[in-house]
Structures are given as structure tokens and as C-alpha cells.
Design a protein around this nucleic acid. Sequence first.
DNA 1: CGTATGCTTGACAGTCATCAAAGCCCGTGG
DNA 2: CCACGGGCTTTGATGACTGTCAAGCATACG
Lengths: 242, 242
Amino acid sequence: MPHAHPLNPSRRLDPALDRACVPLQAVTAMTRGRLTLRAGELVITANARLRALYTLEEGWALRYRTLPNGSRQILDFILPGDWVGLPSVFFGSSRCWVRALTPVTLGVLDARLLPALLRKHPNVGWALLKAGMLEQERADTRLTLLGRLGSSERIGYLLLELRDRLRARGLFPGSSGPLPLDRELLADAVGLSRVHVARALRALRAAGLADLTNRLLTIPNVRNLARFSGYPLKRAPQRPIG
Amino acid sequence: MPHAHPLNPSRRLDPALDRACVPLQAVTAMTRGRLTLRAGELVITANARLRALYTLEEGWALRYRTLPNGSRQILDFILPGDWVGLPSVFFGSSRCWVRALTPVTLGVLDARLLPALLRKHPNVGWALLKAGMLEQERADTRLTLLGRLGSSERIGYLLLELRDRLRARGLFPGSSGPLPLDRELLADAVGLSRVHVARALRALRAAGLADLTNRLLTIPNVRNLARFSGYPLKRAPQRPIG
DNA sequence: CGTATGCTTGACAGTCATCAAAGCCCGTGG
DNA sequence: CCACGGGCTTTGATGACTGTCAAGCATACG
């Protein structure tokens, strides 16, 4: 029983806004400094009061939660260009941890200036909203992954998603690129155990779909892996925020 | 290896902004109309061009994705006061479906007016951002659920989360309230099969933790169920958007 | 050369999916 | 009033998938 929508818009949104380029000088005006961390160091501590906001400029970080029983669920991998710590601006503290996976450099913003910035540059708010929507789509995807797909498909999907995000940043030029992830990280991201991640990777390698050895990911044929894992080959990938 | 944060803010954000009350007259000025749907009808069709934005005023809706193999993953339950279709404003179309679960009434907004609204009322952007952050926290929670918890804990957690969201809207006054969900919906939400959802519910009922019969949910002791399923009893629940 | 770390492999147990059948509720029609 | 049928729920049996434990193997590094 389909229903007719009351709105049938033919005109597109204001393209200048749709591109959602943040006026960089406005953001950098908020920059309080630059932070460099070594691999493994904490960026954000869960449940700690925090009024800073970061942008990841270089390196990998990961956002995760821990459970009473000691296990860990990785919620997202954070790549250069992504924002870090936005929820804590609204709630005063974060309910998840953020940890540097490689050496990273972060731009540090003063969150208290954010309201003023939004008032002055609505484009920034627009861009933040858009970045949030992108992140939500990734969250939806991962939820579907964990809920409905088998182990090899999960791994294949995750690898493809990372590939695309890296490629959008120019960090995965050819058919292979570096991936600083070990079995345990993949396991905590897709809800499996280390052992079964290893098995899934072995299966993918045996099928010629993907190979992750020595932190080097190779995907000989993207289309094949996408078909196998149900990954939608999208429209041109979108950078999060310029 | 802890690290000292460069920002140690003692002053809180502007409380007027932090409360994030949307100037309602501004939003209603965008309202193009009101839409009523029967139970089971589609609100948003995946991959269809759409430039409308809704607010759910009454009833339940659900946001879900479908897979090539025919299975379905429920991404979120949409309750009165929630926004619907925000991502499609940014991407032109939605990658998930939204369907009325009960009879619903929706407020219809013209998405093309949103940029102007944001320019004029930065508070609206702030509120939208905050609502997005809340939704992201719920997404994080569900991801952790699917990745790291067993079947009964998942169900218990989901029931508690729904209870709190309903209570924040005054729709779950006492220790029991109506829940228009059957086994299959719960199953598709937490990544289990109908049969195992039934078993998990039986286990919860046997343990005296929760009872869901005839679409009526009863939680005799919230604290017990929270402890069992790892649900954090939070600070005062926050309404999404006034 | 010994140690440490991470990857691999095998065996076993636990959880969950699947299938099939039986019970329950409720509206319909005789 | 009762028989019938459909949708939803419950229960049992079986098998697939994944977690867990433990041992063997590489590789890097001191």
C-alpha cells in the first residue's frame, strides 16, 4: 500500500550549502592548539568532564566502549578529517573512549566557542550536521552487519568500507594499502573473536577476495568482494568535512 | 599512559543554548501540513528522491534496512517527538525505510527551507545537532548490544531503553505500559530469530525481570533488570526536541 | 640464541538458527 | 452455542556457527 507524498520536490537544495564546505578560516580561528599523541594513548576518557573538541589531522584513532565483563566493542575507526568528541560538547562527557591507534596529531578546538561560531557561520552547523548524518549511515551499516551477516561477510564489508574511506582521503591509491589493524581490533569491531576473524580472513584469502597480511590490505577485485559481502558500490565517495 | 588535556574547562556552556529548546514557532512556520498514515504504511522509501522532513507527532514508526537475502534489520524505533528523514535532506535520498508501526500522524516540513531556518535560528541547528548526538549514542549502544551481549541481555536492554524513552514522553507512567511490538520485530531489532526472542522473554519472565504479554510490558524492578542486562541507569532522561 | 608477540590450527562446548508441530487467542460463519 | 480457520506464540529436536582453550609456528627483537 504505497502512499503519495505531499512533497514532490524537483528543485535541488542550494548547491553551495549542499557542498557543505566549512569556512576553514572560521574553524581554525577556534583552534586552541595542536596535540600529538603516541600510539596507544587516550584521546578521550569515558565519563570524564570535557569541553574540548578535536579534529583528527593525521593518523588513526578508534572509538570504543567497554563492558563490565571486560570485553570491548569498537564503535568506529576515526580517520584524518573526522571530528572527535562532538557528543561530549552536548552532554558534558562522553560515554565512549577514544584512543590513538597510530601516532596522531589532533587540532584542538575550544568547545565553548562553538555556539558563537554556529551563530556566526551557519554553514559550519550545516557541515557538522552532514558529518553527523554520514556517521549515522555508517552506524546503520555496522548494525546491519552485526545483526544479519555471517563472519566472512562482516570482515569483507568492513574492509571495503575502510578502503573507501581511505581512498576518499587519498590514502589507498591502488588495489592495496596499509591498514594498521590486527586480528583483535577487527574482532572487537565486528563482534567476533580473534580466532574466527583469522578464519574469516583465511577464507577471504582462499577465495581471492581480500588479503590482509602484515598490515597490508590487498583487494584484487573490489566488485567481487562487494558482491560477496553485500557492500553497495556507491556514488562518488564524499569527504566528511573540508 | 594517561595524558594531560590542554583544555581544563571549568565554566559550563551557555545554559540557554545547552537546554536547546527549539523556537517552536520557527519550526511550525516551516510546516507544510500534517500527514496521517495507517499502521503498516510506508513513510520513507529507500533510494527514492525525497526532500521532505517529518516530525513524528503521534504513534510508533520504525526505521530499517533490508538485505538481498530478504532479512531485515531494524535500526531504530521512532517515537513521538523524533525527527524522521533528516539524512535524506543531505543526501537526497534515504538508504533505509521508515514504516508506520501503529497509526501515526506526522508533521511535514519543507526541507528546502531548512538552510534558511538554520541561518535565521542557530538554535535550531544546535537542537538538531543535539538530537543527532542522542541518536548516535543509541546507535552506539545497540552496536555494543549486538556485538557483545547474549540474547536475554539484549532483549532486557532493549526493553529498558524503550521504557526510558517512553517515560520521558509520559507514555510509561507506572511499572508497566503498552508496547506495540511482536516477537518478530524484537528479533529483527536485536539480531536474533523469533524463536530465540521468545525463549529470551520466557527466561526474563521466569526470572521475574520483565514480562511482555499481549503487547503489555511490565518491569517489576527496573534496577534488577538494569543490573542483569548491563543497562546504565542514567541521569534524568532528556526529551529529544521540544 | 632466548623471549615476546602475534598469527595459525585443532578439538570441544555453548549459543543460536532452523524446521516442524502443537497450543492459544480471536473473529467468522454455521 | 459451537466448529472452523488464521495469526501469533510456545516448545522440542537437530544442526550450523561461533567462542574458548590450548598448542604449534612464524617473526622481530634484545
